[in-house]
Design a binder for these strands. Structure first.
Lengths: 252, 252
DNA sequence: CTCCCGCCTGCCGTTACGTCAGGGTCAAGC
DNA sequence: GCTTGACCCTGACGTAACGGCAGGCGGGAG
């Protein structure tokens, strides 16, 4: 099985220039050439290219990739294990960023100020520096985002007032429920939790049950959120937290 | 609240040079200068920087970031929504890569050959191109990876024979169980599923319940895996699949 | 007043390619 | 057998996002 540069490029989803470059720097030289000088790649070359692309995606500089791949002590299985490990580390990191964004969203919704240090916490000790051309023409192209933006962009002053009113109405009802001593995992509290979720979804952003329980956790974990709800009624933060979790579990 | 370049750099986790660069290209110019020409950043500048860093991490070129941030139609909440959306898209993508790696791991374990196209499927239509300096000195530095590598590196020929023997022993027992008509969600089948998971963990890589059910799904979804197990005994693929799922649920 | 650390402005270097330019090649069709 | 368009080759220069100096002020603690 022999392939030309163009074929390899199409299969692997890279440009011909990239393959030329990898040849130049000795990262991936085709196993042979035709009499007329055309590059000929074989299956082993493709395997190597696959390794290269994974490590590249994982953020390694090409020079280092050369060293990693040429390391005779690393068999294919070792590479797979390493890549699996690196991928999960990166996913964890992105999930932390998601949490940070959700935190910021909720903070802005409740008008809570963050300190500068807090805002950059997620960038703390680890040098980010990423790129992804994939984002290029994709910007603003994700359905959910457009959806959400369309929604908010159309809000009139009137809408905002209605939103505020709905929120306050919801607040009054849950305070009453708490005062009446209704259990947080009872049907009324769960219904109000669900309503809370749907208020967010209607006015701000699609709020899944997962995101919702994330918010609930923040209400207890961060003192400013706690203070916001405790300020409305003593015990409300914990009450809402429990109700949201109970609601999420029962609907799942 | 006014900050010098150095302070901002420390807070945000970037270099002073980077801030100079952002000033040069007009992406983030400090709101003022001291009489002697020192840059003075204020809180608004920090907020802007935070936006910049998030979009940078999400892979946008700086020029585009300038356009996005200077877009007067986008309020802070819109940015948060967009970033949340982009982050989840990227997480999904990485999880696909994880699945692809797990697939490749399992394929190599069972000696199944992949076609070149399959190997690059995950890079298919979307231009990867990522970087993360974080990986730099971190390479080979993740506990689980070193663990796993230490394990495999020490295997002698004897160990490999033992591994093969254990595997075959497990195979005989599950075939017997299947032949005896024991239910796939019964205790014996679940025990053998658990043993399967622990065999992988002992010999190859730490296999969580989540990964294990992922493997089980592949056994049914991919015909080569199915064929591998069906070849041992008719109905074994589905049987193992169900047993693994039952086991994972009961231990969770 | 003196240090040393921090800040300033150039300016050149680097990585991982993109993008021509100028020219040979291959296979399909006439 | 010849054309033609798609494909390949090797330079060589361009670009983005900084890194890393050099050479020279600024500033606050002792």
């Amino acid at each position: 099985m022999a392939y030309t540069v163009g074929q390899v490029a199409r299969i692997a989803g890279v440009t011909v220039r990239t393959l030329h470059h990898y040849d130049e720097i000795g990262l991936l030289s085709p196993s042979g050439r035709t009499p007329t000088g055309y590059r000929r790649y074989d299956d082993a070359d493709l395997q190597r290219l696959q390794l290269v692309l994974y490590y590249r995606e994982l953020g390694f500089p090409l020079e280092e990739i050369t060293a990693i791949i040429d390391d005779p002590a690393a068999d294919p299985a070792a590479h797979l294990r390493r890549q699996h490990e690196l991928l999960t580390v990166r996913i964890k990191r992105l999930q932390e960023m998601v949490t940070a964004v959700e935190f910021a969203m909720e903070a802005s919704k409740l008008n809570i100020q963050l300190t500068p240090e807090e805002r950059f916490e997620v960038f703390g000790d680890f040098r980010p520096e990423e790129h992804a051309a994939e984002a290029e023409q994709r910007w603003g192209d994700t359905d959910a985002y457009r959806e959400s933006n369309r929604r908010v962009a159309r809000y009139s002053k009137d809408d905002w007032l209605r939103n505020k009113a709905e929120n306050e109405d919801w607040g009054r009802r849950i305070v009453a429920l708490l005062a009446a001593g209704a259990p947080a995992d009872g049907p009324e509290a769960m219904d109000l939790a669900e309503e809370h979720r749907q208020l967010i979804s209607r006015w701000f952003y699609e709020c899944s049950y997962e995101m919702h329980t994330g918010l609930a956790d923040m209400y207890l974990a961060d003192e400013r959120f706690t203070a916001y709800y405790e300020n409305i009624a003593a015990g409300l933060a914990a009450y809402l937290h429990e109700a949201i979790h109970a609601n999420a579990i029962s609907r799942a």
